[in-house]
Amino acid sequence: MLDFMDYVQAVFHARTRWDRDNSYASLTTAAHNLLDFDIPHGMRLHVSSLSSSNFATSYTLGAKGVVDGSLSFLYTSLGLSLPHRSSSIHLQNLVLGYKHLSEFEQVSEPRWQDLWRHSKKDERKDTLLYGRLYLPTSTLEALYLRRISPNRIFRLNCVSDGSLPNGGSVLATLQNDFGKYSTEFLYSTDSSLLGFRGLYNFGYDPRRTDAKLSPRPPAHPWDHQGGRLSAGAEAYFSPVNKSAGISTGLRFTTLPVHSGFPYTMTLTLNPLMGNLSSTYAVKAGPDVAFCSRFDFNVYSYESGVVVGVELWQRKQSSLDTMWARSLLRPEWTRAPDDVTGVLKFRIDNQARVGLLWESRLKELLISVGGGFDLRNRERMLGTVGLEVSYSN
C-alpha cells in the first residue's frame, strides 16, 4: 500500500498530466505490482496530515527488534485538492494492483491550456519538494521534482548517510515524454554513473492532430487501437569503475477500447548478464487478476517461476448491480468507493509464499502479511508484520 507521501506525489503527477507509465522504467509495472509486493516487517504506525493544499507532513513509528521511525515533509507549488482522510481515500488509489494503460493525450488539447500557457513568462512550472529524516540513524532523504514543460520533467534524488561512500549520493534525472516515444537521461554521483533509457510505442502517434482513435473496438487486439506494443532499452556506464550495463525489453498491453479481458505481456533481456524474463498478467474479472513470471539465465541455466493472484473484496451488491457486472466489461462497472479490501498471494518454484491483506478498519488503513518457506519445516514462518496508517 502506498504511504501518504507517495499518494500525494502520485496526485501531483496526475494533476500535472505526467504519464509515469510511458517510460522504460515502468515496462514491467503490472507484474511488479502483482508479484513483488512488500510484506510488512514487524509493527509500524503511520500518522499523516495535509495541513493545507500545498503542505503535508507524515510521522512513522516502527518496532522490529529496535524502535525506529521517520519524519517527512512535503511542499508543492501546485495546490492539491484531494481526499486526504484515511476514511475517504479510495483503496484503489493506494493499492498497487494490475495497471491499466490509458490512451495518449495530445498536448494541444484544450484542457491542457488550463495548465500550460503559450507565453514563457506565464508558463507554469510546478515544483514538489520532499524530505524524510530516518531515526535513529539520522539518514536524510530528499526529492526535488519540477515540471519544466508539458513534455519534460526534472527529478533530483538525494541521500545523506554516513555509511555510504562520500557520505551520500545524488541522482539527477531528466525525462522527456512525447507520447510516441520517451527518453530519460540519468547521472549519479555514485561512481559518476551515466545512464540513458528510451521507449518507443508502435502505432498511434498522439503528436498528429489528425490521428483520431476509432470509437469502435478493432477486430484484432494486436491492432494499435486495441493494444499498444512498446519497445525500449537502457544503457549505463561508470567511468570510475570501468563498468557498463545494457538491457532491452518489449511490452504489449491492451487499451480500454479492447473488448476482451485486459492483459499485459512483457519480455526483457540483459545480454551482458544473460538474464531473460517474461511476464503475463491478466485482469480475469472485475475483482481478480493473475500474473506469472519466468526467469532464465542463458549462462548458468538457472531458472525461476513465480505466480500470483490478486482478489478484491467489495460491499454486498444488489441483484441489479451483479447482473450489470456480468454483462459489462470490468472497467465500466468498477466503483472505487465500494472496495473494502484486497488479498495478494504469490508462490515461486522454491515453495516460498507471500501473503498480504490490505483493508480499511473504520478510520484506519490496515496492511498485514507474512512470508512462508514451505520447504523449511523447522522455520516455516519468516517475515510477518502489521502496518496501520491514519491521515487527516
Rank of each mutant, 00 (worst) to 15 (best):
F12D: 10
T28V: 04
L34A: 14
F37H: 07
F37D: 05
G42M: 04
R44W: 01
L45Q: 04
S49V: 01
S52K: 02
V66R: 15
S72C: 02
S88V: 11
H90Y: 13
H90W: 11
Q92K: 06
V95K: 11
E103P: 02
S108K: 13
H118N: 14
K120W: 11
R132Y: 01
L133W: 12
P136H: 11
T137F: 04
L145H: 01
R146G: 02
I148C: 11
I153C: 04
N157F: 01
L174Q: 06
D177G: 00
T189G: 02
F196T: 03
G203Y: 03
P206G: 10
P206Q: 12
S230F: 14
F237D: 08
V240T: 08
K242I: 00
I246F: 15
T248P: 03
R251T: 09
T253F: 14
L255Y: 12
L255G: 12
T264Q: 15
L269C: 14
Y280C: 13
A289L: 10
R293T: 14
F296W: 15
N297V: 07
S300A: 13
V307F: 13
E310M: 14
R314M: 10
S318I: 00
Q350T: 12
K362A: 11
V368T: 10
V368N: 02
L374A: 13
N376I: 13
M380Y: 06
G385A: 09
S391C: 06
N392M: 09
